[in-house]
């Protein structure tokens, strides 16, 4: 099975919620009810920009039980962007029609946890919006620690504080405030889980801080939506069909295959779900494993690659396709 069934939605509302962040609200094109979802879920939004096809994942932010509309927030990534967030900001307005996937959850709160500590940086707040909604409805114990550059840059600070009160803690970089993670983690009850979402350096910092505090791996969770990192062009050889496909510098292997009409399996397109795992038959270059799915042993083994995120530095690679 490759890909996922899509549904058409219309943009019902666009709001600038922070300096570079817009909130979009989607309704079904025929106003049919949308699926309910679980806290931490995301959808993929399909964008046709010129001859390029992009599918970007965005966390759902509304109430998981609201079937009338879905909401996402998009940060304009500026020059670093591969085009998805730029397209959403510049080409999508009220009335625009888009295709979206069904909700998928790769970042669920652990229902066995005694307490949930949520750590967000910037746009990393988005998965926690629906998660807090769910945890609050379940009367689960949680607290949010949210780092923003400034109140102008941080989305939803006021809303969250008014809705969840003292469970929400905002830290402003422009005022020299840092998330005091050592102190926060130092006094949590047994059975607490920590979840972090934000830029990669922040995720690494939070996970490492927790580990140094003696928190077990099993209690630590993170999610990062990163676009496939660009690199040098290379050639993919397909063992079964004998075809050779050129992967451009800004493309992932998966995108190159799709451009040439090769059917390949995928789901999250962020290196997390494992659906696009592909066998490597030969490789004369070095694989940059940019996924979060393969184990260290599997990476060293060199027999598998997640084609949505990973690429090779030079040379060519032969895949079991």
């Amino acid at each position: 099975m490759s890909g996922f069934p899509l549904r058409r939605v219309r943009v019902a509302e666009v709001e600038q919620v922070a300096a570079r962040i817009k909130r979009f609200r989607f309704v079904d094109i025929d106003n049919a009810p949308l699926s309910q979802f679980s806290g931490g879920s995301h959808i993929s939004v399909v964008m046709h920009s010129g001859d390029r096809l992009m599918r970007n994942p965005y966390s759902l932010m509304g109430s998981p039980t609201d079937t009338s509309s879905y909401q996402i927030s998009v940060l304009h990534c500026g020059a670093d962007s591969r085009g998805g967030s730029k397209f959403m900001h510049e080409n999508v307005a009220v009335g625009s029609e888009l295709e979206i996937s069904q909700p998928l959850n790769l970042f669920p709160p652990v229902r066995l946890a005694k307490k949930h500590v949520l750590v967000a940086g910037g746009i990393g707040i988005t998965p926690f919006m629906s998660m807090m909604n769910e945890l609050d409805a379940l009367r689960s114990d949680f607290e949010l620690h949210y780092g923003v550059r400034s109140l102008e840059d941080g989305a939803y600070c006021k809303y969250l504080q008014s809705r969840y009160g003292s469970r929400v803690n905002v830290y402003r970089q422009d005022q020299g405030q840092m998330i005091p993670l050592d102190a926060i983690l130092g006094e949590q009850r047994l059975g607490t889980h920590m979840y972090v979402c934000g830029p990669k350096p922040m995720i690494d910092w939070a996970l490492q801080t927790a580990e140094l505090q003696g928190w077990p791996q099993e209690n630590l969770h993170s999610e990062q939506f990163s676009a496939p990192p660009p690199g040098k062009p290379f050639v993919v050889k397909l063992a079964k069909s004998g075809r050779e496909i050129a992967v451009k510098g800004h493309q992932s292997i998966l995108e190159a295959l799709e451009e040439h009409g090769v059917d390949a399996s995928f789901l999250c397109r962020g290196g997390a779900c494992g659906q696009c795992e592909t066998g490597v038959i030969a490789c004369d270059g070095y694989i940059d494993h940019n996924d979060h799915f393969l184990s260290e042993a599997e990476r060293v083994g060199g027999k598998k690659i997640m084609i949505c995120m990973s690429r090779i530095q030079t040379g060519s690679i032969t895949l079991d396709l």
Partner: peptide
């Protein structure tokens, strides 16, 4: 298991 973990709503 890998298949089931990625099962989608409505499928």
């Amino acid at each position: 298991l890998k298949f089931l973990l990625n099962m989608q709503i409505g499928q």
